[in-house]
Structures are given as C-alpha cells and as structure tokens.
C-alpha cells in the first residue's frame, strides 16, 4: 500500500513538474513545424510567468492572469516573427536576443510595478490554480495533435516547414501560415510560464524558468517534432526531476547518503543521454530555419 501511494505521489509530481514543459514544447512545435526555429521559448515563458503573476495580482483572477500570459507571449512573438519571417534575420540570433530581452524586461517592469526587481508579491491560495493547468496541458497536447495532424491548416503548417515552395504553388501564403504558427506557439509558451508562476509557485521571481524553455526544446527534438512523442519526452524529463527529488538523501551503502549533487544532475544527465544516445534519426522539418523568400 505504501509503495502504491509512493507511486501515485510520484506520478502526480511528474505531471505537475511537466506542465510548464508541455505547454512550452507544444508552443515550440507549432513554430518549428512551420519552419521557424524557436529558441526564444525560454524568454517567452519568463515573460508569461511575469505577466501572469502581475495580472493575477491586479485582477485577482488566475484565469485572467493566464489569459494575459497567453496574450503577452503572442504579442512578444510578433517582434520575433517580424524579424525572422519578414526580414529574414538569423533565427538563432533573433531568438537569443528575445531571451535576453525577456531576461532584462521582466525585472525592469517588476521594479517599476512593485519596487523589487526580483519578485512580485506572493499570491494567496485562492488566486492560484490547484490542479487545472495539468489537465489543460494534456488538453493542449491533444488539441495540438488534432490541429497539426488532422486539419487543413495543420497540413499547411507542415508544408510550410517541409516544402514551402509547394505550399506557395498551391496558392497559400507561406509567410501568413508561419506568422500564425509562431504567434500561437508564443502564446502557448506564455501559458507555460504562467503555470510556473501562478500554479507551481505563488509569485514571479527573476529568471524563475531556470532553463525550462530549453528543456522543452530538447523534449521537442527528442520527440522528433511530433506532438505526442514530444509530450512523452516532457513527461520523461518531468519524471527524472520528480524522482530526483525523492532520491535525495537516499543511502546506497554505508551511512553516508549519496552526495546530493550527483542526484541533482539527474535531469540534465537524462537530457544529454536522451539527446545524444537514443534520439535515433531525428529528422527536422526540411525548411527549418530557412527564411522563405519568394
């Protein structure tokens, strides 16, 4: 019975930890399937986390907070989309710039609004989500799958990433499809950030994403840019983090517990192992990272 409870708690913990990753990975998938590399996920999440915390503090409604985070991610993505789709900037450079911009802007606004560049006021329990974001995250995965695989628009997105010329020949505006995908993806990443600040904790703190955006990107690549495998990869990362928490202070031999640093590198270790070892033939969308010029 105890073992059963332990497993249930481990699973619950896995789902919680994975939630921000799931949103961000789906956001990244939207963008990358349309042919736009999105390493700005980290920045988008950070911005989403801040906007969600501030908006919830302002409106006293986590639903509005999450909506604001979605919009913030979407609006921030407009800049990114403009740079990479319209102007044809290098997508890695532009994405890095976006990340740095978010890293600087969030403390800046936090300082203006709350007088502290490191955290926003803590939200009471009734202004936070309890379990909803976990279910919403799984819902988003299903929706993304349906959207990308089953709908005509999804097909356009796939073509924009694989053979933009063919899509263009068919009379569909490639740039418009990419714009759409990048913006929706940005919104989803914003939601991922929101789940971090108003679900997993009670305020925004500086750089609170702590690399989760890049974890989501790794999960996306590991999942071969497909929604369901990418989601499973997120759950694997979440699982390694959750089990890491439970393995701390475990005694393997003698009286000394295993040094905690060894256990704490587990999630990173899994990431490297998975990306370097088991990913197999990960084939990116063919036109990924290539600006479309008519």
């Amino acid at each position: 019975m105890e073992v059963f409870m332990w497993i249930v708690q481990l699973m619950a913990s896995t789902c919680r930890v994975s939630t921000p990753l799931l949103f961000a990975a789906m956001g990244g998938m939207m963008s990358e399937r349309s042919g736009v590399v999105n390493i700005a996920l980290e920045g988008l999440m950070l911005l989403g986390a801040f906007v969600a915390a501030a908006a919830t503090d302002f409106t006293h409604s986590p639903v509005l907070g999450a909506f604001a985070a979605f919009m913030a991610g979407l609006i921030f993505s407009i800049f990114y989309a403009f740079f990479v789709i319209e102007i044809g900037s290098d997508q890695i450079v532009a994405g890095t710039a976006m990340n740095m911009l978010a890293l600087g802007l969030t403390p800046f606004f936090s300082k203006i609004l709350y007088g502290s560049s490191t955290s926003t006021p803590s939200l009471p329990i009734e202004f936070r989500f309890q379990y909803a974001p976990v279910w919403i995250a799984f819902g988003v995965v299903v929706l993304c799958w349906v959207w990308i695989v089953k709908t005509p628009f999804g097909l356009w997105v796939q073509f924009a990433g694989e053979h933009p010329e063919a899509l263009d020949c068919a009379g569909v505006c490639v740039k418009r499809v990419r714009w759409m995908a990048v913006l929706v993806g940005g919104g989803l990443a914003g939601l991922g950030g929101a789940s971090l600040s108003i679900f997993l904790s009670s305020s925004f703190s500086r750089n609170m994403t702590a690399g989760r955006g890049f974890m989501a990107l790794a999960a996306l690549i590991f999942g071969k840019w497909k929604p369901i495998p990418a989601a499973l990869a997120c759950l694997l990362f979440g699982f390694s983090d959750a089990i890491q928490i439970r393995l701390q202070s475990v005694v393997l031999w003698g009286n000394e517990p295993v040094p905690v640093q060894f256990i704490q590198i587990l999630p990173y270790f899994v990431t490297i192992l998975v990306l370097a070892g088991f990913v197999g033939q990960a084939r990116a969308p063919q036109a990924l990272g290539i600006p479309f010029v008519k």
């Binding site: 740079f83 890095t96 890293l103």
Partner: peptide, 17 residues
C-alpha cells in the same frame, strides 16, 4: 538596419537592466 535590429534589442536590454 532591420537585420541588425535583434542586436539592437540586446543593447537596449543592457541599458534597461
């Protein structure tokens, strides 16, 4: 000019933060 605009973002960022 547009092509270097992401770079400008970074500069602005340094001033801001």
């Amino acid at each position: 000019w547009f092509k270097i605009s992401p770079l400008l973002c970074v500069f602005v960022n340094f001033f801001v933060c």
